[in-house]
Write a protein that binds this DNA or RNA. Structure first.
Lengths: 229, 229
DNA sequence: CGTGGCCTTGATAAAGTTCAAGAGCCGTGG
DNA sequence: CCACGGCTCTTGAACTTTATCAAGGCCACG
């Protein structure tokens, strides 16, 4: 069955015993969502978690005035909503699709049953949660200790690293969404991109293509060693 | 032996089988630290994690310019440094004692061996990590979507909740440390406390005692419904 | 009794947000 | 095929929030 093929490819389900793949596939429900659909909202009661199969999902917090902070953008193979499985209550943030999405849904109690049976599965889950904590610590560090140009520089370098440290980047999200990842607003992001271009750190087609022209300075900016003038 | 008595009282080690307490006590090393001592630094290689027995420890990130963001303050019974155990590499933040501290140290490989044997232990650990993720999401939300007065109001309410929703609070840390928890600096904190007092939301002895005088307004402030004038 | 840490206050500066306006782009429907 | 509306992005000006720098007070501890 091809759900099994899919789950064997993702990190959360690596190195399990054959039998456990059967068990897993037994508890999975598939769920499809349209573009822009809310999968769950903060404070909703949580009865399980999801794994994206196709499409992307943003996990975010929003303020009463409508500002949004994106915590993650997840794609195929990424689990989400799993925190609530282990704290037993509500989702700590909201999830909305960026595109049409196919997902696998794992009901909470069934999944906990499986975790009790397979130590490899729990170690994988511990590793997923730990990596998330690590990412959150660094997001907190960025928000609290760096200014927006530094965060943007770090993000551009991160995109470059994901792409073999290539100097050409293509943003796979809108600038408005990027602003929300960086903890700022589109206006501020736009101004900083203009400055970076003017000071020859980057070049852009005005849309989603960027070229890193001065990697050294971007690194210095990300570390807070220099500032834009 | 009294290490066993101690560990049976803390959430991470609840509901284990008798035999596992023996195993745990077999791998534990005790470590003592003086006041102000650095237990580990960000990027140090991690070979295990700690549980505080007495004294308090702050977990923090710091910037090149010396500003600090406190991520947690942990006390007796709290585990810390456990993220690195499951991501396999370095500590994502630094740890320093606030007072003289006794701790238990759990070597990484030994502990992973135990986790594989006892599903209850891994579920407990999953729950600890999940609660931390929840707290981090809310810290991120605060830093990104709220202003300092809102964060302070939320913190005061949190202290009150911990104390049976009593109106009298005693801060158990310095105001400089509180500023660092809130993601700001002492000067700003001081000004905001002055404003809150002037507007009769709180009263203070100028040191570490506070009295909540207008809980409703503090709640509104924390939710961003109102502002200080 | 002096020194250093912590806290407060003021003046100033920097960073970011808000508000408003307008340009460019895309898909829809007449 | 073109016009329209909606959306994203950019830019400017005013404003708000917070940080920085500097000074002084208070208190505890040697």
């Amino acid at each position: 069955m091809d759900i099994i093929n899919f789950i064997t490819t993702i990190p959360l389900f690596q190195n399990l015993e054959e039998k456990n793949y059967q068990d897993l596939s037994g508890i999975i429900r598939t769920r499809k969502f349209k573009k822009g659909e809310i999968i769950f909202s903060e404070y909703d009661e949580a009865d399980g978690f999801y794994v994206a199969v196709s499409g992307r999902v943003k996990i975010f917090k929003s303020s009463p005035e409508g500002k949004e902070q994106i915590l993650h953008i997840f794609g195929p193979g990424d689990p989400f909503g799993e925190i609530a499985v282990f704290t037993g209550k509500n989702f700590p943030a909201s999830a909305q699709t960026l595109e049409a999405c196919d997902t696998l849904f794992f009901p909470k109690n069934d999944f906990i049953g499986l975790i009790k049976k397979d130590p490899a599965l729990s170690l994988n889950m511990l590793s997923v949660l730990s990596m998330r904590l690590k990412r959150f610590s660094s997001l907190i560090e960025d928000l609290s200790l760096k200014e927006v140009p530094g965060r943007l520089a770090a993000y551009l370098l991160y995109l470059s690293d994901r792409n073999d440290s290539c100097d050409e980047l293509i943003l796979d999200i809108s600038k408005t969404q990027l602003a929300s990842i960086l903890g700022t607003i589109p206006e501020t992001l736009s101004r900083i991109l203009t400055k970076m271009t003017r000071e020859n750190l980057i070049e852009s087609d005005g849309k989603r293509k960027f070229l890193i022209k001065d990697r050294e300075s971007l690194i210095d900016l990300a570390e807070g060693e220099i500032k834009l003038s």
